[in-house]
């Protein structure tokens, strides 16, 4: 186990420089003393398991058959990467991520614009309301939307029967496209508030002076939006994008409740769950988990490097 060692020897502390005063040294020590436990716990509950998963992924290991555990090297990864199911689930996950995050960004921005100008009297009401989807348990929201659309308990078909393509007997969970539509809708409902709050905070930081100056120059609302507001809150937008994209890419609960992966609606996280928990193939499942972890890391690196998000700056590490 790696973690306990780390507690005892905080790694990156460079050997105390010769020029350091006792006070500095004491402060350093106190710093690690205070922050160390939290750091250690975080490593214990994530770094250790992921290393274990990497190790497990090199074996052919079924939970009910531990005696036949066998080292197979990287062949589990070969199996996964050459399997169309893996690529389908990557496709589904990316689709959900792109669609939900794009819609949420637009919707969340609109919400933020409304909220920042909102009358003082109703602002607390709106603020509380907007927090509710954020606070509701994902599984509960998934059940709620599923029941709304399902054939036996839902009301959507009878309410929206006048729309073309919707009839009393439209089975929303009977096809890939319609299932994914409902899944995305649920995700969007649940997480737009989070994005809108982040954007609201960014919006509040746009200097009023700039807006006024643009107004004096005769800029239209759109021009001000594109030239002043958005460039000035780029950091907030990027952080919101990054966090929501990573969150969306890990989608599991909603799919588990709504479709159980039927009709090719499996996300990558669900695929990992199916291999390890349902199929009991620890080796193969761990390999899927590791690949999911790598994908998430890749996305963050792309975001941070590609869009040059300085998290330490936006997150206030001054």
């Amino acid at each position: 186990m790696a973690a306990p060692t780390l507690t005892r020897d905080p790694p990156p502390t460079p050997a105390p420089g010769r020029g350091l005063s006792d006070r500095t040294r004491a402060e350093r020590r106190l710093g690690w003393l205070l922050a160390g436990p939290a750091f250690a716990v975080m490593l214990l509950v994530t770094a250790y398991p992921i290393l274990q998963a990497v190790y497990d992924s090199l074996f052919d290991f079924r939970l009910t058959d531990p005696t036949n555990r066998e080292f197979v090297g990287l062949s589990n990864y070969g199996v996964i990467l050459s399997d169309p199911i893996w690529w389908t689930s990557i496709g589904v996950t990316l689709l959900i991520t792109v669609v939900t995050v794009a819609v949420e960004l637009v919707l969340g921005f609109a919400l933020a614009l409304v909220m920042i100008k909102m009358l003082r009297a109703i602002r607390p009401v709106i603020r509380a309301a907007i927090l509710i989807p954020y606070a509701v348990i994902t599984v509960v929201s998934a059940f709620s939307w599923q029941y709304a659309f399902s054939l036996d308990s839902g009301f959507v078909n009878s309410w929206f029967g006048w729309l073309p393509g919707i009839a009393a007997d439209t089975d929303w969970f009977g096809g890939t496209a319609s299932s994914l539509f409902v899944v995305c809708l649920t995700e969007i409902w649940k997480t737009t508030p989070f994005i809108s709050l982040l954007l609201l905070a960014g919006l509040a930081q746009v200097p009023e002076v700039l807006q006024e100056a643009a107004k004096v120059d005769g800029a239209t609302w759109w021009q001000r939006m594109w030239k002043v507001t958005i460039p000035n809150m780029k950091a907030a937008i990027m952080v919101a994008l990054l966090f929501r994209s990573l969150d969306a890419f890990r989608i599991f609960d909603t799919i588990f409740v709504m479709t159980g992966g039927a009709n090719s609606t499996e996300s990558v996280a669900f695929l990992a769950y199916r291999q390890t928990i349902e199929r009991l193939e620890i080796g193969l499942g761990s390999a899927v988990s590791v690949l999911l972890f790598l994908s998430v890391t890749l996305i963050s690196v792309l975001f941070i490097k590609g869009f040059k998000i300085d998290l330490s700056q936006t997150r206030g590490d001054r």
């Binding site: 922050a35 994530t46 398991p49 998963a53 998430v296």
Partner: peptide, 23 residues
């Protein structure tokens, strides 16, 4: 190491839960 702690926290926050549940 301040930055290390904050980045670790960030990394843990974006961690896919499903990846560590089996180990």
């Amino acid at each position: 190491g301040k930055k290390l702690i904050l980045s670790t926290a960030l990394a843990v926050a974006i961690f896919p839960v499903i990846s560590i549940v089996t180990p």
